[in-house]
Structure formats: C-alpha cells, structure tokens
Write a protein that binds this DNA or RNA. Structure first.
Lengths: 344, 344
DNA sequence: CTACGCTTTTGCAGCGCTGCAAAGCAAAGC
DNA sequence: GCTTTGCTTTGCAGCGCTGCAAAAGCGTAG
C-alpha cells in the first residue's frame, strides 16, 4: 500500500508552504485567488485527501458523535437513529453507534471517564437502566444529550415527549370509547423505570379526572417493552376472572404482542378488547389490525438532539441544561376504532 | 477543560521512559514485573487513558469498521447490525454505521477513494443499487466484505445465502400445499436487481421441476422490499381477473404489506391466499397471521463478515476473495400452514 | 524615501502515540 | 577477567495536520 498524498506533497508541487495548502483546503480567508488556484490544481493533480485522523489529533476533536441505545433492533430506535444519522451527517459529523443491551454496567461505562473518549466529541444517550448515581459519576467534560427517560439535572439536555400527558390522552381515548376495564401493560415500579412510571401516572390521572380508579390487578409490569413481553402480559390478563376490555400498551411492540395473543385466542380487536400503543413504529401501520398509537415527533427529537449536542460540543462554557418537550399526537387506527378507519 | 493525562506524565511519575509506559499499557512482552507494577500504579494514580486518536495516527489505522446499509430502519438490517456490532466489539473494533438510502451515488462514494477513508479500516457493505462498474472503480486498498447481493470478483469477500435454492424451496412449499396460481412479489428486472432476480430464478425453477410454468402476470416487480410495496403489489394482484391463491414475497416486510391488503379486503390467510416471506424478522413471528419465511442465519452472516474483514485488514497480502454461503432454513408459520401451527 | 497598516504567507512546534534501532545491563561462556 | 548473549529499557523521529506568531509583501500616507 503506497503512501498517501500529504499536505507537504501538495505544497511542494504548488510551490507554497504546507500551511498555505491547509488554508486553501479548509477554505480559510486571506488566500489570493492566484495561490488558491495553483494549490487547487496541485490537489487535484495528486488526488490529495486530508487525513481525518491527523486533523482530529491536531484539533483535539474527533468529528464523531456516539449514539447509545439499548437495542438496535427495536424499530423505535432504528427509526430514530435513521434521523439522527442524517442530521449529524448534514453537520459534518459521523455517527458511532453502540447498543448497551440495556445493561446498566455498560451504560455506566459509556458516560464514565472512558477509554473510548476522544473517539467521539459527544454522546446522544437513550438510557434504560441508568440510575441517578451513574449520571452523577459521569465524565463532566463529556457533552451529553439524553433521550427518553429521566429529566435533566441541568448539566445536560434532555429531550422527550410529555409522557404523562401523552399517556393520559391515550387512556382518555379508551375511556371515550366507553371501555370499563382498562389494563396497562409496561409498568416498571423500580428505580430505573422512570419513563414507565410516568406513563402509569398518566394512566391513573385519566381515570381520576373522571372520578374512576383503575383496577390494580390490570396494571401489569414487564421487564422490557417488546413483543414477547406484550404477548405474555396479555395472556396473563386474559386469564383473570374479569379480563379487561381495553389495554394501554407502553410501546407499539407490546401492543403488537398483545394483539397477537388476543387474535390467537380468537378474540376480536377492538370489538372484544381495544388496544392502544405508543411510539408509532411502521409495523403498527401495517399490522392486522393497525395499531392506534401515541406518535412522538421522531424527526424533531433527532434534529433537536443533534443540534443541542453540537452546540454543547462547540461552546467552551456549557449551555444551561435544557428540558425539551418534543411534540406528540394521538393517531387513531383500527385497534381502537375498528375496520372502518381503513388502511394506512 | 484541563489537559488530559499523557504517557509522558505517567512516565515521569513512574520514573521510566514514555516508551516503557507504552509497552506496559499495550501489554507488550519483556517488561519486568517490577517496572510493570510501578507503571501500573502511576497509571492508576493519574487516571491515565490512552488517546485513541493519537494511537491510531501513529499506527496508521483507525480501529473502526464501517457498516454500510441501505436503510437502518429495515428490521432485517437492524437485526443484522446488532450482531455485527457485537462481533466487532469482541474483537476490539468500533462500528461506524452509514445508511445510503439505496442511493447509488452515495454507495459509490463510500467505496471509492474517499475522504472518509482512514476513519475506518474496512467496510462491510450491503449494496442495493451498486453496479459492476462502481465496484471496479473502487479503492483497491480498502478491505471490503459484501453482504447479500452480487457475487465476488475475487478481490473481496461475499457473504450471503443461496438465494436461488432458498427461493425454490419457498416456492416448493407453496406448490406442496396444492396452490395453483402462485404469484411472486419483488422482482427487479434491471441491472442492480441481482438478488431479486436470483429469487425469481428459484421461483421459476421450482415450477419447472414439476413441469409447470408460472404465469408472467403474477410476477410483480417492486422498487423496494418494504411494506407499502407489498401492500400495493398485492392490491394489484387481487384486481387481476384471476388472482393468485399463493404469494411468494421477496421479504417479510413485503409479505406483511401483502397480508395487510388481503386482510383489509376480507380475505383469509392462508385459506384464500397463502403467503410466504423472506428474512425471518421478528415482526413476522408476532403478526396476524404469523409469517412463514426463509430464515437466513444472521448470526453466522454477521460473524463471518466481521471475521473475514478483520482478516483482510490484518494481512498485507489480501486473501483470495471468498464466496461464503451462509445457512438458511424454511420456517413454516400460519401464513401458509394456518392457525393449527400455533404461536411463536 | 521612510513609515505604517493591512493582507498574505510561512515556520515551527506539537497533538499523543508507536516503530525502530540502539543502548544498557545482567547472566552465561570462554 | 573479558566477551557474548539475550532480555529490558530508552531516545528519537515521525504519523499528517493545525495553532500561533512572526515574517514578508504591498499599497498608501507622511
């Protein structure tokens, strides 16, 4: 493998200093047209390509941001990632992806003073099992934006939708349909389940607002928010003496799993049991039935996350930690409204 | 932001040369226990962390591999990526992910002599619209492993399942069920549609083996392999004077889209129309009905891809381009076998 | 003709690490 | 006692680039 062309090679051919070539390549001001042209000709002639590594080392930055998610194969995350990658690329950043498998140790390692540091200039982080302690122990110099769970302590930005409001809205939708026994699948009544708990809060609030109290045995907790969890939880609910006639699922995957169980037991959705999900992933738009859901504005979340992170990376005095509420809306589909609502 | 601790700082504290510290940190042989201990103590005391950037620059490698896929939110790719990331991490490599949106220009740019080069030591590439020309024009020094489509010209490795055999198997399964009018959704009768064409070949071969000829109007081509494509194609098929009684879909997403259309028109799957997919994504295991599919061994594909790539990266004389056939199998679920087959 | 202010160009040091080859050193051999 | 051998340790150069500050060029004013 022959040596790559360097700045110096170009400089020699163009008859200028390597610093000048650097100036031209980086589009710095104050280069005469004459010089610029000569350099550019030399660059093209030699096929010069800047060595990103060297540039980064000299600049002390990496030009990469890391995005850390629990699971890459969860549609919600892959859809979100897609937008993040686009947003980052536009701004000249590469995206390094890491999945933690929800392992708290792994999550902790990622934001702690790490050997991987310097490989990325900042982190967009969607934690799952991260406790307050781990956040406190984190590398304070690492620009950080957190998605989803938890709220900011002022030293980082947090972006998410209003989980309580969205959950209340979802539950109200079921109540509006006249359902009497509404279940909730996805609660996580332990320290790291903040997001889940906020959804449960919304669920309770919606009931309370109408003078109702949800049955405690209809609030099912699940370790994750995936299809098998949903399927299992639904099976459990159906085995109750008085099973629910509607279910609020804390993710679309849970909803899809639940629907699967319902259908395979010969029940009709929504006639026998209405189901509502959360996340608005593509699957829910093509499933049978299609899934009513809370749709967070993923594009907004991704773009804002990248923007805030780059802002942090760029400024020496870190900006105030921001609490950003991304928009969301309720999308009504067949799993609550019935076939009438139609297709996509 | 205070300066980071460097090798030199550690060296000074330990009273040795920085080179020795480097030797200890990298676990090189021939360091006396005594020295090693002193250095390690100093490392811990100062909280030293190697600067990956500098190391990479000095070594002329980046410690990163790029994985390039058309769409990140396609479950097949995100499931595959998940395995690739794990395999790479075990071997000390980070994964840089890029999506091309299937844009041929973008794909081309990625393997051409690129400015991004040096950011990664090699590429695992799953092309969509890449023609032979682009492959020929590629940076010959870039270690490359290609997934899915196309076959190797000897200068890179190619890993995929035997599409023709798998497709024949899928079609045979439908024929075995006694279906008379079998459609195929996903053909791509143009230069960049090699993979699709191989599936069509298997489809035809299965028919031919029984002295049958598929009806040409039942072979539908689609631009992509996603749900909307499948839904549209199925709608078209149902509008034919003599619609099919079985469909071979070139991806599970296409199958899910097709099923969606069938169900929304009040048809029963598989009684009225049997559907078989390809890829074995999780969605198909929880849909209604669950989807019979060709299941490629994704774990094997991912692991092999990473291994071959690192082999290429590691050796100065590039190994012979390998054509690897990963295993696959037919998984029969409800969309062809009916409810009897049960759950997951 | 010198001085001054501005733009353009340059030289150098250094980012933090590793490759290389030489130097140091202790044990073994003659 | 001196050389040889083999293991440890070291020094230096350099990966390719950019920050910094000084130097050079150049037009205008005094």
């Amino acid at each position: 493998m022959r040596r790559e062309v360097t700045l110096r090679d170009v400089a020699e051919l163009a008859g200028v200093s390597s610093r000048t070539v650097s100036n031209v390549v980086n589009g710095y001001a104050n280069v005469t047209d004459h010089t610029r042209e000569r350099v550019q000709r030399a660059v093209e002639q030699l096929g010069y390509r800047p060595n990103v590594l060297a540039r980064n080392l000299a600049q002390g930055r990496s030009g990469q941001i890391a995005v850390v998610v629990p699971y890459l194969d969860t549609p919600y995350f892959s859809e979100l990632l897609q937008s993040v990658i686009r947003a980052a690329r536009v701004r000249g950043y590469n995206v390094l992806i890491d999945q933690t498998d929800g392992d708290p140790e792994h999550e902790r390692a990622f934001i702690a003073h790490g050997s991987r540091r310097l490989l990325f200039d900042g982190v967009i982080f969607s934690p799952l099992g991260l406790d307050q302690q781990a956040l406190a122990d984190r590398d304070p110099t690492l620009p950080l934006v957190i998605l989803g769970e938890r709220s900011s302590d002022g030293s980082f930005d947090h972006i998410g939708i209003d989980d309580v409001a969205a959950s209340r809205q979802a539950t109200e939708h079921l109540l509006d349909l006249g359902r009497q026994r509404i279940a909730a699948i996805g609660d996580q009544p332990y320290a790291t389940g903040e997001a889940a708990q906020r959804r449960t809060r919304g669920f309770r609030e919606a009931h309370a607002a109408r003078g109702l109290t949800p049955r405690e045995d209809l609030i099912i907790s699940t370790p994750r928010f995936n299809r098998p969890d949903g399927a299992r939880a639904m099976a459990h609910l159906l085995d109750l003496p008085e099973p629910p006639d509607a279910v609020f699922c804390y993710s679309d995957l849970v909803a899809l799993g639940a629907i699967r169980t319902l259908v395979s037991r010969g029940l009709r959705v929504p006639e026998d049991v209405a189901v509502i999900g959360y996340d608005d992933i593509e699957d829910g738009r093509f499933s049978n039935p299609t899934v009513t859901t809370i749709s967070p504005d993923k594009e907004a979340i991704a773009t804002t996350a990248v923007e805030r992170l780059l802002l942090r990376i760029g400024s020496s005095t870190p900006p105030e930690g921001l609490e950003v509420r991304a928009p969301h809306r309720l999308i009504i589909r067949e799993s609550t409204a019935g076939r009438a609502t139609g297709t996509i």
